[in-house]
Each structure stands twice: as structure tokens, then as C-alpha cells.
Simulated assay, not measured.
Amino acid sequence: MTEGTTSPAAEGVDTLSRLEQEGEIAADYLEGLLDIADLDGDIDMDVEADRAAVSIISDSDRDLQKLVGRDGEVLEALQELTRLAVHRETGDRSRLMLDIGGYRAKKRTELAELGAKAADEVKSTGAPVKLDPMTPFERKVVHDAVAAAGLRSESEGEEPQRFVVVLPA
């Protein structure tokens, strides 16, 4: 190797340590928010699919429900604030994913089922299926489920009314 280059394995380690650093910064930021809001919660960090994943878990989901909000609106806002906190510390844009009280995990399961059901409908009718407007996270999960079913999909419309269309093969 030439001077100044790194091996692919070293780049993988660098990426992992960078994502772990993002998780640490996010955890510190979120712990501060929990303290300010006087809410109990434990922070769990992981790296999933080339992004830092941070979860707030608690024995009292009622407390955490305030942080999720209606249809995950507060969760989305907290995720953006956390990404900004990471960006402020690292100078790099973060793709960190935040989950609170298992909301995203549960939502991911529901959306994967919705995508598979829409794909089945398209396979049986041969006609495209348009789904209701969704957040970028929700659309990504549906796109992945449709692809796993062997079909293709695309997003149409403008935010916040952007939606998924499942197309015949």
C-alpha cells in the first residue's frame, strides 16, 4: 500500500469507531435531556447497517410515550436534535437512528407487514398500489419490504405528503 492510504479493514474499523463515537455523543446528549425532563430511562447504543443506533428504554413506557409523541412526531424531532448535537461535536453529518421505548422497532414490523401486503395485492391484481403519506423512515422500511417481495416501489409527492407506490414487476 502507498503511504497515506488505509486498508479496507482499517477503514471498516475507522467507520465503526466513528459510529461508536456518534453513539457516545448522542447518549450523553440524550441523558442530559432526560435529566432536564426528569424522566427515567436507560440508553442503549449499537451500530446497525452503517449507522449509529441509540435507544432509550425504561420500565415506565408511560414516561417515554411523552418523548415519542403523536405518530412519533416528538421522536423525529428529538432524533434531529440529537443528530445536530453529534454534528456540532464531530463536524460530520450524522445518520444516527433514535428509538424510544421500542416505538421504531414496533413501527418497523408494522410497516414491513404493510409493504408485504401491498406487494401481494400488486402481484394478484397487476395494478400499482399507492400508500398513505409517510416519513422518510417509514418509506424506507416499506421500500425494503417490497424489494424483499420481489417487486419495485418508488416515492412520489412532496414532503410531508410523500408516499410510496408499489409497482408491478
Results as ranks from 00 to 15, higher is better:
21 Q>G: 14
21 Q>M: 15
23 G>W: 06
25 I>G: 05
25 I>F: 11
25 I>T: 09
28 D>W: 11
29 Y>C: 08
30 L>W: 02
32 G>A: 08
32 G>Y: 02
34 L>D: 01
35 D>Y: 03
35 D>S: 13
35 D>N: 10
37 A>E: 10
37 A>P: 07
37 A>V: 12
38 D>V: 13
38 D>C: 12
40 D>E: 14
41 G>W: 03
41 G>H: 00
41 G>I: 06
43 I>Q: 00
43 I>G: 00
44 D>T: 13
45 M>A: 12
46 D>E: 08
47 V>Q: 04
48 E>L: 12
51 R>Q: 11
51 R>D: 05
52 A>I: 02
53 A>Y: 14
53 A>H: 14
54 V>E: 02
54 V>R: 08
54 V>H: 08
54 V>K: 03
55 S>R: 11
56 I>V: 09
57 I>H: 04
58 S>F: 07
60 S>I: 09
60 S>R: 12
61 D>L: 15
63 D>H: 11
65 Q>C: 09
67 L>Q: 01
67 L>W: 00
68 V>W: 03
69 G>E: 01
74 V>Y: 02
74 V>S: 07
74 V>R: 13
74 V>H: 07
76 E>L: 07
77 A>M: 04
81 L>P: 08
81 L>M: 14
83 R>D: 04
84 L>T: 06
85 A>D: 01
85 A>K: 00
85 A>L: 03
86 V>P: 00
86 V>M: 01
86 V>F: 06
87 H>G: 07
87 H>S: 11
87 H>R: 14
88 R>C: 09
89 E>S: 12
90 T>R: 03
90 T>D: 00
91 G>S: 05
92 D>P: 05
92 D>H: 13
94 S>Y: 04
94 S>V: 02
97 M>I: 15
97 M>Q: 15
97 M>A: 14
97 M>R: 15
98 L>V: 00
98 L>W: 00
99 D>S: 02
99 D>T: 00
99 D>H: 03
99 D>N: 06
102 G>M: 06
103 Y>I: 03
105 A>G: 12
106 K>E: 15
106 K>F: 13
106 K>S: 15
107 K>E: 13
108 R>M: 07
108 R>Y: 05
109 T>L: 13
110 E>R: 12
111 L>A: 02
111 L>H: 00
114 L>W: 01
115 G>M: 05
116 A>H: 07
116 A>M: 10
116 A>I: 05
118 A>S: 02
119 A>N: 05
121 E>A: 13
125 T>G: 01
126 G>S: 03
126 G>C: 02
127 A>F: 09
128 P>D: 06
129 V>M: 07
129 V>E: 10
130 K>S: 15
130 K>A: 15
131 L>Q: 01
132 D>Y: 10
132 D>V: 13
132 D>S: 10
132 D>P: 07
133 P>Y: 04
135 T>W: 06
135 T>V: 06
136 P>G: 13
137 F>W: 09
137 F>G: 09
138 E>N: 06
138 E>V: 04
138 E>D: 07
139 R>A: 05
139 R>F: 05
140 K>R: 15
140 K>N: 13
142 V>W: 02
143 H>A: 09
143 H>I: 08
143 H>Q: 05
144 D>A: 14
146 V>K: 02
147 A>L: 14
148 A>D: 12
148 A>W: 06
148 A>L: 09
149 A>C: 08
149 A>W: 09
150 G>V: 03
152 R>T: 14
153 S>E: 05
154 E>R: 15
154 E>A: 11
156 E>R: 14
156 E>W: 10
